[in-house]
Design a protein around this nucleic acid. Structure first.
Lengths: 339, 339
DNA sequence: TTGAAAGCGGTACCAG
DNA sequence: CTGGTACCGCTTTCAA
């Protein structure tokens, strides 16, 4: 493991010059900089992490806390972890994983041991215990998700309310007067922060627009297909002409399958819109209009905020809600009775 | 952030005594140890990570490299990451994530910067580029999975060969003379290390037992349901009396659905065995015999080997294959024509 | 533009 | 059983 003094000797300069040449915190003449860079490359030098943490005030590590509850949707979750890691690396940061109980206990530990420069919080619950923890430690913390009590916190997330409003407006504008929402599993509405946001905004906006509405959960993992088909059937029988879906791909397919089995066409007989889907709705049996939930638009700013929290212009606490975008795939049309 | 000298003062002892009391590397009288522990608890002391890394020879961090290819099965993968993190914490270790390109580049980086004590490798490909990397760095590396060229490497994995043999033997012993295997997606047989192991062992063992056999892949993610039903249909029409399945839950359900649709009962008409499933086959439409692929039996020993690699009795390179276990759920019976 | 040297906060050796 | 202290390898201030 080559050290900085070896680089200094090889380049014929002092240790401090090597350090400054690498950090760029002090001007170094092009000539010496060249020699140093060559020595670094030839020796394969890479500064000792521990020494850098101790001497500098930066560890170049972010913690990522994720309880990984049993009901979290693995593919979605993985894409958020991945996006966070990639964004962190772009800023020269590594990601330290804190899972399960460590998601909370570890937060306190890495904060008081100075192992990380900042903490990113995933898998946020409405009454997340990491909220109180974040307030009690000096380590900057950024939530990817919005807990109920977010006073004084830095949060980044898709604007789920706006997404639901956008979807309702779309079908309302098309003339629909009775619509339905098929949501996630029952437990998601208690343990996760965004399903209730979508549901409430859906109901509020529909009411505002004078549109009658129904809501159904999509059942637990084991029963989701069957429960979804039943929910779809009951919406159809209630006379809805448009269905919004806020769920995983298999639920979408179950909705479409039930409609198809009943001889109903999309969007001819029923309009369908996918709200905050984290998969490609173009790959479904039928392409479906979607307001996607993508990891990058949330994770990139979250990492950016974490980085900026370490700089002099530390960002103010507050909500950073990412505006939703609507993608038209042709699954919405005016209802039959209004054409 | 409280430091060791504050603890020492509070306890009325020297810095070194505090250090030894916490590390246990030198006997400390019960009385002083008490005082120190109380001071630690009261002040909420936790040793500075950077200082510990620099002074000690341990960073207390393991790297976990996982390319996270697009075809990796998220739920399975997540359970392995989780099991690894939990096992690491049991040994006072944190996990640093290295994903995508960083899975390889980061390996070299964390090795030469001394950021981690050891590296755990997930998502192993047959011709994994991390094999050469592992050989070129001094940092101990443990593979969870077995690459084709594993000379001189430390690898831990389920004994997939033995699992396939166990499954073939089970149905062969029951009297089946024509059997089928429905495997994973085509791409898995090129990019992943274990699907080919299962397939080859299946074919070899069936031949040894004088059992005729067929093999089918289960199609890509988008087409897996349809492809699986077709594969199942073609096996049935070829006259197989037992089907082994090495795939995800949705493929299992597709197999069972096709059999049911054809009026075939399990195990009355067709026996079914699940090989190396990483989900609960008891939750399927029909309970199915299984040789499970669990994360803990592989991840726990892998972390253990990583820890021991740092001790004087460094383990020898070699394969650590975890013996498979067969769980009977009543989905295997003798074939009709032999009863 | 460059160098010397004082820490950063622990660990572990050498004494007592 | 306990204390003093020389490092660990880098960052950054102070001086030149």
């Amino acid at each position: 493991m080559v050290k900085i003094n070896e680089v200094a000797e090889a380049a014929g300069v002092s240790i401090s010059t090597v350090s400054y040449a690498l950090s760029g915190k002090r001007p170094v003449s092009p000539a010496t900089r060249q020699r140093i860079e060559r020595a670094v490359a030839e020796l394969g030098y890479s500064p000792n992490a521990g020494a850098r943490m101790l001497a500098g005030s930066r560890t170049h590590i972010f913690a990522l806390t994720e309880p990984l509850r049993r009901d979290t949707h693995a593919p979605t979750h993985m894409s958020f972890v991945l996006a966070t890691a990639v964004a962190a690396r772009r800023n020269e940061y590594d990601i330290l994983l804190l899972t399960e109980e460590e998601a909370s206990a570890g937060m306190a530990r890495v904060a008081s041991s100075g192992l990380v420069d900042a903490i990113l919080v995933l898998d946020v619950a409405p009454d997340d215990e990491r909220v109180a923890l974040a307030r009690s430690i000096p380590t900057p913390t950024v939530f990817i998700g919005v807990p109920d009590d977010h006073e004084g916190l830095l949060c980044v997330d898709l604007d789920f309310d706006a997404a639901a409003v956008l979807a309702v407006d779309r079908v309302a504008d098309a003339g629909h007067r009775l619509i339905g929402l098929i949501g996630q599993s029952q437990v998601s509405y208690e343990k996760s922060n965004f399903p209730p946001r979508v549901r409430r905004a859906f109901e509020r906006r529909a009411t505002e627009r004078g549109v009658a509405h129904h809501f159904h959960v999509s059942g637990d993992r084991a029963t989701s297909i069957q429960a979804t088909r039943e929910a779809t059937a009951s919406l159809v029988e209630a006379g809805v002409t448009a269905i919004l879906v806020h769920a995983a791909d298999d639920v979408h397919n179950a909705v479409l399958a039930e409609l198809t089995d009943r001889g109903l066409s999309v969007p001819g007989d029923i309009s369908v819109v996918s709200v905050a889907a984290s998969f490609d709705t173009g790959a479904l049996a039928l392409p479906v209009d979607v307001i996607p939930l993508l990891p990058e638009p949330s994770c990139d700013p979250a990492v950016d905020l974490a980085v900026r929290s370490l700089s002099p212009d530390r960002p103010e606490p507050g909500l950073h809600l990412i505006p939703p975008v609507y993608y038209d795939r042709g699954s919405v049309a005016p209802p039959r009775d209004r054409r």
